[in-house]
Structures are given as structure tokens and as C-alpha cells.
Write a protein that binds this DNA or RNA. Structure first.
Length: 156
DNA sequence: GCCAACGTTGGC
DNA sequence: GCCAACGTTGGC
């Protein structure tokens, strides 16, 4: 099993939105970056775990944990002219963008803010903390995952 | 609001 | 294939 971190701007789609979904499950549409696309398409597998991260807000923070419940399939929003994620270069015959489905797994008792992650020993090489890193779907090592998970009690 | 870092586009 | 210009991300 592998571990990931996915960023979202809560003004667009928040942890609270996620919890309110039917069966607390959502598709992760709108990835329009090739590096992130390759991870979504090729690497994320059923049962993998994901940190759900709020970006742009103050402070940015990891909110909780989700589980991958469906592996990659074409992001059909790319085919919808009226959708902000529309991309004419993606077609049903030759899809360019992909998404996965994730389901709520557990919440941290309180969000883990970015400054705390920066101060936590063992996370120095985390992709999230690398200068200039803006990958919105990124790998987390098993060691990093374990360290972060121990920072807070989980509630489910 | 600023701006550094990064990604993409398009002319050549 | 190069690279300047432009657009976006995202922390501060």
C-alpha cells in the first residue's frame, strides 16, 4: 500500500464538503498537471491512503485521512465545454486527464497546520515542505505517514 | 497583495 | 529544440 497527499483549496472544495458527500465519497476531478496526472493514472491504487490537505487558507493544514476506493478512470469534466476544467485536447477516445475516488476514513482530532509539520523531526524531506513544491497530488513515505499520524488522535 | 517558483505556450 | 513570455500555485 502507498500513501499520498492531496491538496485542495477549501473555497473550492473543503474537508467539510467531503464529509457531507453521500457515503462520504468523492471523485478527485480537475487535476490538470502532468506530473500529478501521472501519479493519479499510474500509481494510486485501491486501498491507498491519502492525507486531505487544505491549501491557501491560514494556516494550511492536513485535515484527515481518506482511502482510495476507485482507481484511475477518465476525468469526464475535461469533455464538458461548460465546465471550468474543460480541455478540448482530451476526448473520450483519447482521454488526457484522470481521476480517482476517495472515501472518508478518519479525521484528526484537530487539523495539523503546516508550521507544525515544518517543526516535526523526520519530515525534513517531505515533498510538501520542499521549497517551491506545488504538486497537488504527491507521495508520502511510510515513515512520514507514521510520524504525522502520531501527531494527533484520530476520530472516526 | 506580493512574489518566488514552477509549468505551459508558442514563435523561431 | 530553445527559450522568452505568460499564467498559476500557494506560502507569507
Amino acid at each position: 500500500m502507498n500513501y499520498w497527499l492531496m491538496k485542495t483549496e477549501p473555497s473550492t472544495y473543503s474537508w467539510q464538503n467531503f464529509l457531507a458527500e453521500p457515503e462520504q465519497t468523492t471523485y478527485w476531478e480537475g487535476i490538470r498537471n502532468y506530473q500529478a496526472r501521472n501519479i493519479i493514472r499510474d500509481q494510486i491504487k485501491l486501498g491507498d491512503l491519502v492525507f486531505f490537505y487544505h491549501s491557501v487558507v491560514k494556516p494550511p493544514a492536513i485535515m484527515g485521512i481518506a482511502k482510495v476506493v476507485r482507481e484511475s478512470y477518465p476525468d469526464h469534466y475535461a469533455w464538458d465545454q461548460d465546465n471550468p476544467y474543460y480541455d478540448p485536447k482530451s476526448t473520450p477516445e483519447n482521454p488526457r486527464w484522470f481521476m480517482v475516488d476517495i472515501q472518508y476514513q478518519a479525521a484528526f482530532e484537530s487539523p495539523i497546520p503546516l508550521p507544525e509539520l515544518k517543526q516535526t523531526p523526520g519530515l525534513e524531506n517531505m515533498v510538501l515542505l520542499k521549497k517551491g513544491s506545488r504538486l497537488s497530488v504527491q507521495p508520502v513515505t511510510a515513515a512520514e505517514w507514521k510520524i504525522i499520524e502520531r501527531l494527533r488522535p484520530l476520530v472516526s
